[in-house]
Design a protein around this nucleic acid. Structure first.
Length: 222
DNA sequence: TTTTGATCATTT
DNA sequence: AAATGATCAAAA
């Protein structure tokens, strides 16, 4: 079960095989101990699903399914099927941005082909009882691509102009920039107001929930 | 320290 | 309630 899937259909078969199971059941089968809550193990669900589907383990800067070029994203949803959280995409480069295009960006590379795996994850449901939903493969359509590109270009330009400190999660229609760090004291290099290097909080690109909500709606309406 | 995996918790 | 900001753990 943990060898990488060779084809997209084989990957889909594995996804279908775990749909409907609870996290507790799957964890038991794989020898994982289910935590009481995710307070200190926020990435636990993602790690569990990666192992179950045969994603290349580790924190390597590569797609989860290297040979297929597919990125796995678990997506916590409510009883109504709506996303409960924004979706982290990638760390935002804050320096050496000259000449970088959307098509070359980490955002595009990650989102070009995604396996969405919804998890019924209301906070009042114990982790062990949360149910795995029907995962599906997705690629951005023309409109989604355009929205992502527009936001990425706007945010990246502001970063390049040294306005990183003026940015917050409000910017962007579907893609936003927010802290992505161990804590609020973490620092990394960035471009300052006068074009000089400054130290600032590391940021990441996140998909807003209304964007992922549409992805789910488009898929399950069919 | 950075990249992987994200959710928690406070503010609006 | 939704949005924004803060935070946790493992691996390299």
């Amino acid at each position: 079960m943990n060898a990488p899937p060779q084809t997209l259909s084989q990957l889909q078969q594995r996804v279908d095989a775990i749909a409907g199971k609870t996290l507790g059941q799957l964890a038991g089968e794989l020898g994982f101990k289910t935590p009481q809550d995710l307070l200190r193990e926020k990435g636990w669900v993602g790690q569990l699903i990666e192992l179950a589907l045969g994603a290349s383990a580790g924190s390597l800067p590569e797609p989860d399914f290297v040979s297929l070029g597919v990125e796995l994203k678990t997506l916590p949803i409510s009883q109504k099927g709506l996303p409960l959280e924004t979706t982290f995409v990638s760390v935002a480069p804050l320096t050496n941005l000259q000449g970088l295009t959307f098509e070359q960006s980490t955002v595009y590379k990650k989102l070009n082909h995604v396996l969405w795996l919804p998890i019924l994850a209301e906070r009042d449901i114990a982790v062990i009882d949360r149910v795995i939903g029907s995962g599906f493969l997705w690629r951005p359509n023309e409109q989604q691509f355009a929205q992502l590109k527009r936001d990425w270009e706007e945010l990246t330009e502001l970063i390049a102009l040294g306005k990183i400190e003026t940015l917050n999660g409000h910017y962007g229609e579907v893609l936003q920039l927010r802290p992505k760090a161990a804590n609020s004291q973490a620092l990394t290099d960035a471009i300052g107001p006068q074009g000089k290097t400054i130290q600032t909080l590391p940021r990441g690109f996140y998909l807003k929930t209304h964007f992922t909500r549409q992805i789910l709606a488009n898929h399950f309406a069919l």
